[in-house]
Design a protein around this nucleic acid. Structure first.
Length: 449
DNA sequence: CTGCGTAAG
DNA sequence: TTTTCTTACGCAG
């Protein structure tokens, strides 16, 4: 199912191949993995250039812990995931600057990055907010210039630093990207095929197996127990044995490490399987009244995401839970509500989400709540003979709310209690926000020439 | 099919 | 190894 087309060298068209057998340089299908260095930090720096060269961290929602670190912050000993309240006392001494995460800004910068990549390659798979795979075919001699040019272009157009790794498989492109990041003399670009054979094995026999894309901590432990500790060990392992003792996915990884492509470029996953909207609260929520406000708010934000994706949900799951290791009573109520017909209507979703309220235990200290929307379908497609299909009238509210929000801000309007302009106690803490430089007219960066 | 574990960034 | 959030996949039952 996931097997890739073998890379075709030169002309796959027999007629062409016969006519010019020697004129055509061998052409390889290669993969590039482009990845922005410390993406969130780099986005902040584009608009706050005085942060360049200084230790900077970006904090998770609620200003909880560090989710992005500049190189300088790493060098200063700041750890990924470190809670901000522990770091704050040392921050001044370290010269450390923190920023609340600003996903609007990152999302906007991300699409600009993807667009530039698209100008360089006809096949692009957006892999995450800051990473993309791109297909490349052409003679080996043009690969390095391609990668360098792509990197320089992103720097020139967006002022973002990226690393580019390339190889005959996605796994090797990932690996090469890691090398590009670790070795300064590579200047952010590494082509696996140009790494000398002798250097490859030395390199791989020093890399712990966990560095491989798809091998996490658990798998690394199991592999270690089987005597496979390094990437080189894994590459030399018998694929059949790996499939039997571990999994078919890991076998693909082994083959990919050997240069045999097994994982396709997925250019467009046109419809995601599910949409999750969940947030921890700045302060615990203990009453049904407050929880109603929370889930109404979440349902409306989930609805607008659904709309942005031109998608509709048939099923909604709503849950809340107490903090994982709190000394207080634990509770994790959750319920799944089948919706009458696929919808992205904020009213319908809000109504459904209220099914959580009777399951709550009044007085319990809930720390987080969320919605899971599943059985997604494209908006507009309706089941042929759905007797219960909602009339189109219910649909008109969503776009209206959207329009008002985009003009007046996300909290300008809402349904029921969630429409308050003043911030509620449970809402995210974002004390160190920088403006939304690229997406909100009233926060646009001012330039003085 | 559902729930759980693993992995990713 | 998590004090974040989101998505996906494989496996067991």
């Amino acid at each position: 199912m996931n097997s890739a087309p073998r890379p075709v060298a030169g002309g796959d068209d027999p007629e062409t191949a016969a006519r010019e057998p020697v004129l055509r340089a061998p052409s390889h299908q290669l993969f590039a993995l482009i990845d922005v260095n410390s993406f969130y930090v780099s986005c902040q720096r584009v608009f706050e250039p005085w942060l360049n060269g200084r230790p900077v961290v970006v904090l998770s929602n609620n200003d909880g812990c560090c989710i992005a670190l500049s190189k300088e912050a790493k060098d200063a000993g700041v750890q990924m995931g470190e809670p901000w309240f522990k770091l704050a006392p040392r921050a001044a001494r370290l010269g450390l600057t923190a920023r609340s995460s600003n996903y609007e800004l990152y999302g906007d910068m991300s699409s600009r990055v993807m667009q530039v990549i698209g100008e360089h390659s006809p096949q692009v798979e957006i892999y995450s907010i800051d990473e993309a795979f791109a297909g490349y075919r052409g003679p080996l001699s043009t690969v390095l210039p391609f990668a360098r040019d792509l990197r320089a272009d992103i720097r020139r157009k967006l002022d973002l630093p990226v690393c580019v790794g390339m190889g005959p498989t996605k796994t090797l492109a990932k690996l090469a990207n890691g090398l590009a990041k670790s070795f300064d003399h590579l200047h952010g670009v590494c082509i696996w095929d140009t790494v000398p054979e002798s250097a490859r094995d030395t390199l791989l026999s020093r890399l712990p197996v966990q560095k491989v894309w798809g091998v996490g901590r658990r798998m690394a432990e199991k592999l270690q127990a089987a005597g496979i500790g390094t990437v080189a060990d894994l590459r030399h392992a018998d694929p059949v044995v790996i499939r039997r003792r571990f999994s078919v996915t890991l076998m693909r990884t082994v083959l990919e490490l050997r240069g045999e492509p097994c994982i396709d470029l997925e250019e467009s996953r046109d419809l995601q399987d599910q949409l999750i909207f969940s947030r921890s609260f700045a302060r615990p929520v203990t009453t049904a009244k407050e929880m109603e406000e929370v889930i109404s708010n979440y349902a409306q934000r989930a609805a607008s995401r659904l709309r942005q994706r031109s998608s509709q949900a048939k099923t909604l799951t709503v849950y809340a839970r107490t903090a994982a290791h709190s000394p207080w009573a634990q509770h994790a109520p959750s319920t799944t509500v089948p919706l009458r017909s696929p919808t992205s209507d904020p009213l319908a979703l809000t109504r459904a989400a209220k099914a959580l309220l009777p399951l709550m235990i009044e007085g319990t200290r809930y720390a987080k709540a969320g919605l899971v929307l599943t059985e997604l379908s494209r908006a507009g497609e309706q089941l042929a003979f759905d007797l219960f299909a909602e009339p189109a009238q219910e649909d008109s509210l969503g776009p209206l709310l959207e329009e008002i929000r985009s003009k007046a801000g996300a909290n300008a309007i809402g349904l029921g209690r969630s429409g308050m302009k003043t911030r509620s106690a449970w809402e995210m803490r974002r004390d160190m926000m920088s403006p939304r430089f690229t997406t909100a007219w009233d926060e646009v960066l001012e330039v003085s020439a």
